[in-house]
Amino acid sequence: MTILKKFLAMVGTVLLLSFLSFLAFQVIPGDAAQVQLGTNATPEALLELREELGLNDPVLVRYARWLKGALQGDFGVSTRYRMPVSELLSQMLPNTLALALLSLLLVLVLAFPLGLLCARFEGSLFDRFFTWVNQTVMAVPSFFLGILISIFLGIVLRLFVPGRAVSWSENPAECLRYLFFPALAIALPKAAMSVRFLKSSLITEKNKDYVRTARGKGMSRTRVLLTQMLGNAMISVVTFLGVVAAEALAGSIVVEQVFGVNGLGRLLVASIANRDYNVVQAIILYLGIAVVLVNLLVDVLYRRLDPRVRRQAS
């Protein structure tokens, strides 16, 4: 029953999202016909092209038409690139997914060891040093970090050629090598936040009774930390990681621009500027589904981590 309710809520959320983004295009000036015809537009040509693109119909009719197609897996044709939206997206999606997974992996690899060590040796030189590093990295936005990485790792150290991205279909190994640097730009600030989150949750647990009991029974600090506290601390950390994952999947729009990664984020920005509705709708739909799925995953993880949630549900 709850599963069904959850599923319906998910579908509702995605539908509402797609409708709102459709409406948003009614508010902003300019449309696809205008962008396509540019400074050569005459009122007659505009009218004719709008008719062909179906832009003259009322909003609700157009939304219904789009929805009907989308439900059947047909997302229409891009007005700018003259190719089916699904084909266009399938060119960009692997890059964005690879970037997202890579940055998520980096976040996990960096955050867990550091968070655990900082909590275990709270107040030590090690902890104080990383707290300072964390504060600094957190304060730097990803796109700026991206520019710094481009300059120092790219131009000065020549580890990669800034602005050149190799696509997944061309060469997966090269693609990952090039994606490593944008992934680093995305991951560092998020990893820093995760370290801080993990550390503070662990420290909150530290003063609880069960820890004292475990310690009293003679368990070592490290063992209590790993076997007892980590599980409990994870409950809040998972929520935060869920947000991080959703953001990563949603394509780090600005970072994609900085590194010239041919991904969904860049395509989304370009398509909004071109008023390429079909492409924008499809990307928004993808983003919505990605975020909703991540939330579902977080819910499932909660149940595994927290028996209280499990009991409440049943």
């Binding site: 481009s150 300059i151 790219g154 131009i155 020549r158 050629v161 800034p162 602005g163 050149r164 621009q257 900085v258 010239g260 860049r266």
Partner: peptide, 16 residues
């Protein structure tokens, strides 16, 4: 196709 003149400039510096 570069994102902007600035992005292209970085590529120029890299000799790309």
């Amino acid at each position: 196709i570069s994102e902007s003149t600035d992005a292209a400039f970085v590529e120029l510096l890299a000799g790309n």
